[in-house]
Amino acid sequence: MRLKTVLWAAITFAVLAYLIAPIAVLIYSAFDDGKFFRFPPRELSLRWFREALASPEYRSAVLNSTILATIASVLSVAFGLMAALGLTRGPLRSRPIVEILLLAPLTLPLVVWAIALMQIYARLGLSGSVGGLILAHTIITLPLSVRILMATLSNIDPNLEDAARSLGARPLRAFARTTLPLAMPGVLTSAAFCFLISFNDVVVTTFIAGASWMTFPVRMYSQLRGQGVDPITLAIGAMIVALILVIVALGEARFKWSRRL
């Protein structure tokens, strides 16, 4: 019995270690003082973190990513909320559509999206435009936000809004006072995930933006494909990962994110 318990724990921790290892190595390697990472490292320092914070190029790349992801996730949640309301409350509700929409987004074949969008954009003359990029990011994040918001809304009693109305609230106010506050955990969850998808995206962005809007992942990707990764990239990546981990830990503690996906 004891041995079995230990064995279970061992397997579990091995799998967890595998999940964490790449991120841990990423963060660790950012402390390597050398220009190219090697293990064991010659010397550990904060050098690249200092340079990262001082570099205007990188600052603008991270800023670009942040702006893009913020706008895209706000749009995605706004449209996602409308779509989810229509699909769960409105005349559009229908079981099969709902089921497909609930399953599809997790597999989200980004490459397929990217190839399709790239051609559509070329025809519409949107290629390389920032507006087009925002639109593309909104489109690729939309299915997930619809999924999360639909799951959220389907757990909220539609009678609540009716009750508010019968008590004298106009429709918009009834929504704002009942459904919306109750859907807030879902709204924040989907905003966070859309932000992360958009912020981290390299596939769709490289396909349709070219070099016009240099986001941090695109910069990192081109280094990975080319001469190798700049240690400053490692340092920024490490900081981003650390930030994401904190956010996700909070999200999981507060909103049970893993259950909403």
């Binding site: 790449p22 990423l26 981290n200 990764v229 990962v241 996700v248 830990a249 999981e252």
Partner: peptide, 24 residues
Amino acid sequence: GLILTLVLIPMVCGALLPTLGLMN
């Protein structure tokens, strides 16, 4: 909660950062 957070890592960090870690 903690373990599920760890499980979510590859999903929330995008494709690139974990890949970079894996290369190292």
